[in-house]
Simulated scan of single mutants.
Amino acid sequence: MAVTPPEQRIWWNEPIERVELVWIVIAFLWGLFMFGFMIAWHFIGQQNLSKEAYRTTPSAYEAKVDDFAKKFQVREEKGIPVVKPKPGADVYLLGRLWQWWPILELEKGVSYRIHLSSLDWQHGFSLQPTNINIQVHPGYEHIISLTPTESGEFGIICNEFCGIGHHTMTGKIYVTEQKRAEAEPRLAEGR
């Protein structure tokens, strides 16, 4: 029940107050501005990652990740392989109930193509504390380009509810400084 009921029972035939009409026009124009600027923010603000996506099967993707982990494993951490690929290599990471696997060790300042997929449900790949968030779907291989700019330990969390163990679904990426000998070409070579 309204405080002051309309004079007529058919309220939509009532005239619109001037102030209300002004706010409707402002909201409509703001909505148009925001809609149009979404495209500009992609380029100007670098808000969204440019990514590729390809169809795959969970079993085929799992085989790729297993091969990748066996080839580049450097150690284990709580039973999970820590994988250090060659600088600039394609890197494979999979989400499954309830972990991101394997742990990655990347080099600062080197660009990598990160391949992501899920074996079971939709998961969220959220790299903390950076602002990278991607929905990862089973049956699709998502590829993003990533160049770490800081060294340290970065956490991966799932930000799409994926079941009872969702709150435990985490992973890690270590970013290390390039070794000086690897970063600078040897002076003795080429003489």
Rank of each mutant, 00 (worst) to 15 (best):
R96P: 01
E62C: 07
E77S: 10
I26P: 04
A69K: 00
L94E: 06
W41A: 14
I143G: 00
P87K: 04
M169I: 09
Q99D: 07
N48S: 14
G36S: 14
G95C: 12
N133F: 11
K78E: 13
G109Q: 04
V19M: 12
E184Q: 14
Y140R: 11
E189H: 11
N131G: 08
V110Y: 01
A89V: 03
I44C: 07
V25W: 09
F68P: 00
R55K: 13
I44Y: 10
L49V: 08
Q135S: 10
D66M: 06
T57F: 09
E52V: 05
L29T: 08
E153A: 11
H142F: 11
G31W: 10
V74A: 03
S118T: 06
F154E: 02
E52P: 01
F161R: 03
E141A: 02
R9G: 13
G190N: 06
R191F: 14
A2I: 04
L119W: 02
F28S: 10
W30D: 12
V136K: 02
R191N: 11
C162M: 10
K51R: 15
L187Y: 11
K172P: 05
A27V: 06
Q46M: 11
W98T: 10
L32H: 05
E105Y: 02
A183N: 09
V25N: 06
F161I: 05
Q178L: 08
Y174L: 10
V65Q: 00
E107A: 07
Y54A: 13
A53E: 13
Y92E: 00
F154R: 05
E62K: 12
A53C: 06
A60H: 04
N48V: 11
I144L: 07
E20F: 14
K71Q: 11
A183H: 08
A40M: 12
A183W: 09
Q99W: 04
V74E: 05
P87C: 05
E77V: 07
K86W: 05
F154G: 03
E76W: 05
M38F: 10
E184F: 13
F43A: 09
T147C: 04
D90W: 00
Y92V: 00
D90A: 04
W100M: 08
F33W: 09
T130I: 13
I134Q: 14
S145K: 15
G190M: 06
H115A: 04
W12V: 09
S126Q: 15
L187W: 09
E150D: 10
V82K: 01
N159L: 06
V3A: 09
C158H: 01
T149A: 13
P85D: 00
S145F: 12
F161T: 02
Q135L: 07
E184P: 01
E153Q: 13
G124P: 01
E76M: 06
I10K: 12
F125P: 02
F37Y: 15
E7V: 12
G36M: 14
N159Q: 11
K84G: 00
